[in-house]
Design a binder for these strands. Structure first.
Ligand code: MN
Ligand code: MN
Length: 304
DNA sequence: GTTAGTA
DNA sequence: TACTAACAACGCACC
DNA sequence: GGTGCG
């Protein structure tokens, strides 16, 4: 069964809108599309003009999933971006610039929104740096909150504005919007220095670590490696494939010390936006110039 | 979920 | 018409 | 070069 949905001046066919996508909380595929259209205005500024990496769950959160980079045949309102890899492989990614395109990828079974860190205006230069906090065990959320505040402190001292959000899975993301002037490897090198400074300040390997080997890891992983080409994160307001339909929730820093990531779901997020607004407003108008900060971390300057 | 390929 | 298979393959650290 | 990792 196909239900055509009107989205602005476009019509998007939604197949099987009544298919259960989150059976544990009674949400259907149609509910998921409605959620994304509800929050589209907040979510789109984070998606626009970025290569969109599809992770598809055509049978909902309990079904099989697969990755798909190449965009299938699509309506005109879905954008596209050609990318060449060092291996010689090439891919035509989807680009989600409007609510109709968003609804279109949700219909394909994309529960999550995964995007590159760069925009198509300069595909090789990210417009944010990311510190990704990944708990090693299931009982470290209190450490995540504490470490996030140290991340903020380090970034503050560098004069960098930062924006926290729950990942919606187990961890937390801190984003620093930057002008797209530095290539992926140099942004990653910068993030590494920040992560290692955070690790030093926490000074407890049971709390925060940059140790790469999982077997030797105890504390929360301060993951700087996510700042690389062809790596993605679930963007702000993305739903995650969890049984309770959790979403990646942008936070104000004052909320971080006692935030509970389970509080933000497909059911609760629209009301939160109505009540407290979008914590990322203005974020993309505060892009920092990263190059002069390399020296302050004792790093060689970035190459062009 | 959709398309392309095969029988 | 019916069935099936494909749908990613990076970028880096470390040994 | 092969493996681990996200
Ligand atoms: Mn993470
Ligand atoms: Mn990670």
């Amino acid at each position: 069964m196909i239900r055509p949905m009107r989205v602005g001046r476009h019509e998007v066919p939604i197949s099987n809108p009544d298919k259960p996508f989150f059976p544990e909380v009674g949400l259907t595929k149609g509910d998921l599309v409605r959620y994304y259209l509800d929050v589209a205005e907040c979510a789109l500024p984070h998606l626009r003009r970025r290569p969109f990496h599809m992770v598809r769950y055509p049978n909902g959160v309990d079904g099989e999933f697969f990755h798909q980079k190449r965009v299938p045949k699509h309506p005109d309102f879905v954008g596209e971006q050609f990318v060449r890899f060092p291996s010689g492989h090439t891919t035509l990614f989807a680009v989600i610039d409007n609510a109709a395109a968003l609804a279109w990828v949700i219909n394909l079974g994309c529960i999550e929104l995964h995007t590159w860190h760069s925009r198509i205006d300069d595909i090789e230069r990210p417009d944010y740096m990311l510190i990704d906090l990944d708990p090693t065990t299931g009982d470290q959320w209190h450490h995540v909150r504490e470490i996030a505040l140290v991340v903020r402190e380090v970034l503050d001292e560098l004069g960098l504005a930062s924006y926290p959000k729950t990942s919606g899975a187990t961890g937390l993301h801190v984003l620093v919007p930057i002008r797209p002037q530095i290539r992926f490897p140099d942004v990653r090198r910068f993030a590494k220095a920040v992560a290692e400074e955070v690790e030093r300040r926490v000074d407890d390997q049971d709390v925060a670590t940059t140790t790469w080997r999982v077997a030797e890891r105890r504390g929360v992983f301060v993951d700087f490696g996510q700042n690389a080409r062809d790596r993605t994160i679930a963007s702000a307001y993305s739903v995650r494939p969890t049984p309770d339909a959790r979403v990646s929730a942008p936070l104000r820093w004052e909320e971080v010390p006692d935030v509970d990531p389970a509080a933000f779901t497909v059911r609760t997020m629209p009301a939160r936006i109505a009540e407290v607004g979008d914590a990322t407003v203005g974020m993309w108008r505060r892009k920092a110039v990263l190059a002069p900060r390399f020296e302050r971390l004792g790093l060689e300057p970035p190459s062009l």
